[in-house]
Simulated assay, not measured.
Amino acid sequence: MASNGASARVEDTENSLEKIKRQLASASGRNLLQGPLLKRSETLRKWNDRWVILDPTTGKMEYKIRRNEPNIKGTIVFDANSTIALSPVNFHGLPKYDGCCIYIGTPQKKDYFLCAETPGAAKAWVSTLHASQLVLRAHKEAVNSLSGSGSSQLGTVATVVAAANSTALEATKEIEAAMKISLRNALGSVLNKSPDGQIDNTTIMKETLRVKDEELQNLARELRARESTIKALVEKLSETAEAAQAAASAAHTMDEQRRVAYAEMERLKENYEKQLESTTVKLRESEEKAVAIRKEIEQLIKQRDSAVQEAYLWRTELAKARDHAVISQAAVVRAEEKVRLTDAEAEARIKEAEQRASAALHEKQELLKYVNALQAQLQRSMT
């Protein structure tokens, strides 16, 4: 089922790419809208004549200084969210530009102020710009649809491109009419300025030939530009085809990887079931061990309680023994005090006895001397 989904996604991608190819091919026949416009300078606020070229199929709007100028002077950038309107205010100032002013405001806070030759030309420019915005919006929705972030809008791109080309074609007619009016007004002003009040046919023919020559040159440049665009589109289509082939190959590779991943997932599932069974057995054994350990813990708690009680009894006995030891120590101190006093009295008595003994010895010696003296006297008297 997954492989069918992958192949379906590949087919959808290829179909989307084919639609884009057809839309690019249809865009190769686009009608460029070009004509003169007055553009206000952003810095000096000065109005300058510019030849503006609008590609309604891409929303690219460029301008040159003159029609036959080969180089592009600048670009007017707008998108699908830009504000494009025919201004009711004549910000040019001259009365002939009433209803001819065009305002373009972008979300990037960049404003453009333009003026056409006639109100009809201004309306033609605005309508073509609006058609270009629809093309830009359709392309954006088509890209979102291809990337999977929006609803499928690829079928509307060709429709809005065709509508933009048609609008540009109608606007070209209006702008050409405005250019003819402008040329007629210019020739009229030359006629009014001529001394004799008229202009010869040669001057008119030269001016007409000059304008036609410029148109032919522009047409040749447009043809060369279209040829280069067609070549670029062919290259893009070839790149798109290569990208489609690469996408199909990538989808095939992804399908192979998906099958390998599915097989790996099945193997992992089997391993998981085996591990689950072994884990269940180990869990049961662990529960039995936990029950046995819980019983042992209860017995240890009982033994601990009995040991605590016994320790309490020993603490009580120890306290009693400490009290008895304190009492005994006090008795010993008192006995030691008595012994000390007795020793002091004995020492005093011994000293007194020694003094008496020394006194008696002294008296004895005196008596011995006296006896010896008496004996000596007695002997002398006897002789």
Score class of each variant (00 low, 15 high):
residue 359 A to M: 10
residue 205 M to P: 00
residue 228 S to M: 11
residue 63 Y to E: 11
residue 90 N to W: 08
residue 246 A to R: 13
residue 43 T to G: 04
residue 365 Q to I: 11
residue 245 Q to P: 02
residue 19 K to F: 06
residue 383 T to I: 14
residue 277 E to K: 09
residue 136 L to M: 15
residue 146 L to C: 06
residue 316 T to C: 10
residue 339 V to G: 02
residue 349 R to E: 13
residue 116 A to T: 10
residue 253 T to R: 15
residue 197 G to P: 05
residue 16 S to A: 14
residue 367 L to Y: 04
residue 6 A to G: 08
residue 64 K to T: 07
residue 292 A to C: 07
residue 224 R to M: 03
residue 173 K to C: 00
residue 19 K to P: 02
residue 32 L to G: 01
residue 93 G to M: 01
residue 178 A to E: 00
residue 304 R to T: 04
residue 290 A to W: 05
residue 337 E to K: 11
residue 313 L to N: 14
residue 85 A to G: 01
residue 146 L to V: 14
residue 104 I to P: 05
residue 109 K to L: 11
residue 143 V to M: 07
residue 73 K to Q: 04
residue 292 A to Q: 15
residue 287 E to C: 05
residue 145 S to D: 04
residue 327 I to Q: 15
residue 9 R to M: 12
residue 381 S to I: 13
residue 23 Q to D: 15
residue 303 Q to L: 13
residue 307 A to C: 04
residue 229 T to N: 14
residue 273 E to V: 14
residue 226 R to V: 15
residue 363 E to T: 11
residue 53 I to Q: 06
residue 145 S to W: 06
residue 195 P to A: 13
residue 336 E to L: 15
residue 367 L to Q: 10
residue 142 A to T: 08
residue 110 K to F: 03
residue 128 T to Q: 03
residue 257 Q to D: 05
residue 202 T to D: 13
residue 3 S to Y: 05
residue 183 L to V: 03
residue 284 R to D: 12
residue 347 E to L: 14
residue 54 L to W: 02
residue 85 A to S: 09
residue 67 R to H: 01
residue 120 G to V: 07
residue 101 C to G: 04
residue 66 R to E: 10
residue 127 S to P: 01
residue 161 V to K: 02
residue 116 A to V: 11
residue 195 P to I: 09
residue 258 R to N: 03
residue 58 T to G: 08
residue 265 M to N: 10
residue 379 Q to D: 15
residue 333 V to A: 15
residue 93 G to F: 00
residue 32 L to P: 01
residue 130 H to F: 03
residue 211 V to N: 02
residue 238 S to K: 05
residue 31 N to Y: 09
residue 231 K to C: 12
residue 304 R to V: 03
residue 347 E to A: 14
residue 372 N to R: 01
residue 44 L to V: 12
residue 195 P to W: 06
residue 52 V to K: 00
residue 79 D to H: 02
residue 212 K to I: 13
residue 282 K to M: 15
residue 210 R to F: 01
residue 108 Q to R: 07
residue 367 L to W: 05
residue 256 E to S: 07
